[in-house]
Write a protein that binds this DNA or RNA. Structure first.
Lengths: 230, 230
DNA sequence: AGGTGGTGTCACGGAACTGTAACAATCGAC
DNA sequence: GTCGATTGTTACAGTTCCGTGACACCACCT
């Protein structure tokens, strides 16, 4: 899961330093010096979060933040305001422009990273409160628990995701590549044969409850989770 | 049904801004600069909720909150404490004093409104009594006390809040990040692994009463407080 | 000042998980 | 039936994840 940060900071030395720091932690950083450039990146790159300097030449960061948050199409991108001044008035004004967090220079790298993670964590994840039931197999997503015939069954994370995907997409054939995309996530590079092994592991578990036939092989294409027998 | 907010904040600019913000959302706001004025409003207006600045001239917000919560006739009015960043560490004390929630400047308007609604919803719900009981474990919320098998057990504030959260949200998996949000509060930036340590401490206490299995690890996702065994 | 309890962080080690290779079994076309 | 292609199965090593104890720091109390 790639996280793209749009870093808006006019002072080149600071910008570069921050970019380096953030890339080192694993983020993908696009650094720009002003709001004009930032707006272009916004459309092209769809950043996950914006790190925005308070003071900027031309349109200030605060002002841009306010506009962003008013704009329906961008208001859900979290913004962290970065301020040089550490004084009261900033905090006060920080309130009403809709920034999701606020950090004052000087700050420690650790604090910055932690705050970015916290903001991202918060803005993501509307709570998942579903419950899938098929053939006596009950997957309750919020409890993260699998029950077959009223018996609790332990699953490894991958097995769980694989089964979840199958149960939400029954009776349809998926190639190994598609399964990798959906269960492992797009940007992973894994041997397709690995899917076979996980299918095997899942089957082994289902076999304990005479549900082996649910996961079917479609030779030459992939696998299918079939509710109607055969 | 109109919701009346009593806003206690000494700094006029902040007070006005908050008042405007809240009125815009549809609340009725009465803003006052200190505790003396606040007490008068309390009697005249019967506010639905109090938004209380931490630092106030004369009697501090914290102190007043403590008194309010001791006073039977007012203890059921919910209080949200508002604190400047520098006082962030005092969060624990804030909740110990009986405040229903706590929010740090700077915060987004969205967050503030969300918290007000959440607190109101919570205090309106009749199910939120001052007592939670599960499996022989009794949390008396008003006393901040824990009893297991009729034995009083000492808990640190964090342990208490963690257990309280678990007991009010049983059988559901929470990631470390979600636990940080709910138990430590948003606007904290703490290492996620710290959650592990507190889980460990809580388990250690529960183990003294053969309740270890209540707190379960869900590998790759988080933790769960499970009432149904296994 | 010194003591105490609470808290966040770190480092270490062990356990669980997972990808891969290697081999066995099966299928389908001829 | 034979043969190549495809899939099933197993073992194993590398990696990730989690539990645990230790420790430093801070607020508070005496």
């Amino acid at each position: 899961m790639d996280i793209k940060i749009l870093l808006v900071e006019d002072e080149p030395s600071i910008r570069d330093m921050l970019a380096m720091l953030l890339e080192q932690v694993g983020f993908i950083v696009q650094g720009v010096p002003d709001v004009q450039m930032a707006e272009r990146c916004l459309k092209d790159n769809a950043p996950s979060i914006i790190l925005l300097d308070w003071m900027l030449p031309g349109i200030s960061g605060v002002e841009w933040c306010r506009r962003l948050k008013r704009d329906k199409s961008y208001s859900d991108i979290p913004v962290i305001l970065v301020s040089a001044r550490s004084e009261e008035e900033d905090k006060v004004r920080g309130l009403d422009v809709g920034a999701d967090d606020y950090i004052c220079k000087p700050f420690s790298p650790k604090e910055l990273v932690a705050r970015i993670r916290a903001v991202l964590r918060r803005s993501a994840a509307p709570e998942n409160t579903e419950r899938i039931e098929q053939k006596g197999i009950v997957l309750s997503l919020d409890e993260h628990r699998l029950k077959i015939d009223d018996t609790v069954v332990a699953l490894s994370p991958t097995e769980y995701r694989l089964l979840e995907f199958f149960m939400t997409h029954p009776d349809k054939v998926y190639s190994r590549g598609q399964l990798l995309d959906h269960v492992w996530g797009r940007s992973t590079y894994i041997e397709e044969r690995t899917v076979d092994v996980h299918i095997r592991r899942l089957r082994k578990i289902l076999a304990r409850f005479q549900r082996e036939e649910l996961v079917q092989t479609v030779r030459g294409f992939g696998y299918r989770f079939s509710l109607q027998g055969e």
